[in-house]
């Protein structure tokens, strides 16, 4: 899906936990998720901290979308 949406001209950021699989399916902008069953959250954190974590991952996704890349790039920090 990532590849076909990008082929249509949209920048796509893939938020996924198993980065090697994301690379294999051809995502060009990758933000690693927290864990497989909760890529954008952490049930061990208090609600406020979990929300802040999710927000920070989205901000990183925005940074990925606004960064020109030449090849597959993992935005891991």
């Amino acid at each position: 899906m990532v590849k076909e949406i990008e082929r249509a001209g949209f920048p796509v950021v893939h938020i996924a936990t198993i980065v090697p699989i994301s690379l294999t399916v051809g995502a060009n902008r990758i933000v690693p998720g927290v864990a497989i069953p909760h890529p954008l959250g952490n049930p061990d954190l208090p609600a406020e901290e979990e929300f802040a974590l999710r927000r920070s991952l989205i901000e990183r996704a925005f940074r990925a979308l606004t960064t020109d890349v030449e090849e597959q790039t993992v935005f891991d920090c």
């Binding site: 899906m1 990532v2 590849k3 076909e4 249509a8 949209f10 796509v12 890529p39 979308l65």
Partner: peptide, 26 residues
């Protein structure tokens, strides 16, 4: 199937003037 989903989703996004996509996977 995944390729077809991607193509069809992109068509709708294009028609509705979307600029970028966040795709989340488990």
């Amino acid at each position: 199937n995944c390729s077809r989903f991607g193509t069809e989703i992109a068509e709708q996004l294009k028609a509705d003037g979307v600029d970028a996509v966040i795709l989340t996977s488990t």
